[in-house]
Design a binder for these strands. Structure first.
Lengths: 155, 155
DNA sequence: TGATTTCCCATGGTATCCCATAAGAACCCA
DNA sequence: TGGGTTCTTATGGGATACCATGGGAAATCA
């Protein structure tokens, strides 16, 4: 089966809770991670979220540097300082922390976006903007992937 | 045996369900994917649908970029954020989600178009127009400058 | 002890499961 | 060949399960 796909927008309640979309919970259950792993994205106003599969990707990054080296320490602080492990309650909800609020600008609604091995947490309006841009970039990337020398776009 | 071929038009019921053509279900059963994998087409008002074979094609595209990089993120949002995994019920039906409705303009009827390794989901009238245009282009290519050697041309 | 967090239950809307039916296709046997 | 029979398929609808959301109460923390 596949990973996190599609996107959903849910409401925050008065206690700052929001339902994680049921299809995403099913993927997390298969992954086996306890709770949720969250880390603020370094290049956009979103939070990466997932389980063991996401954690493995992050670890892979820091393994490129020797442990105890200054580079490794700096990266570790940057990565894990920007991370959280929110719990998921019995009804499949998580609490949006202040860190997530500050980094995303979320107020009363949350958009969850599937990205296969992880998903992202967005403020809905910011997501719409980012998505339009992402689609433009994706089109350019995919057409550039094919060995076509010129930048020309057919009709 | 072959993949998805021919095309069929079925009705949506009051609950937004539509029967997936039986021949397509047979192909999906052979493919072994759980449910259906759907992704909105980036260049026309249709949705690509299929199983593992389609998913593999999509994965291949995103694997060209390093995970957690801005490029990969943009591509993942464009691809997987625009995807869905509809279930197929015991009678071989799927529900047409709002995302599919918005992207295709489907209201009360759905046209399923076989394309071998995948099939497409269209609003019937839009498909007729697209098909007519595709045939014009094909005719122009066949009768025109492009060297098409031995294959007989229609009409 | 006051404020916050966590657990538990309630509810309305929706999706899913299951069964029914009608039309057509395939099949069979004389 | 022809008529009857059985299967398959698309479609409709009732009953049930699930899900997002709200809110009370217990537990935890400062």
């Amino acid at each position: 089966m596949s990973g996190f796909v599609s996107h959903f927008t849910n409401r925050l309640d008065a206690k700052g809770r929001v339902s994680i979309p049921a299809p995403f919970r099913a993927v997390l259950a298969r992954d086996g991670f306890e709770g949720l792993y969250c880390i603020t994205s370094s290049h956009c106003e979103a939070v990466d979220a997932g389980g063991n599969e996401l954690l493995a990707e992050i670890n892979k990054r820091s393994e490129a540097f020797a442990k105890l080296s200054p580079d490794h320490d700096a990266l570790a602080i940057a990565l894990f300082g920007a991370s959280e492990n929110p719990k998921i309650d019995g009804d499949g909800r998580m609490v949006i922390s202040d860190m997530i609020r500050d980094h995303t600008g979320i107020t009363d609604q949350v958009t969850f976006v599937g990205m296969n091995y992880k998903f992202q947490i967005w403020e809905p309006e910011k997501f719409r903007e980012y998505r339009a841009e992402a689609q433009r970039r994706a089109l350019a990337m995919l057409s550039g992937q094919v060995p076509v020398p010129s930048q020309g776009e057919p009709a």
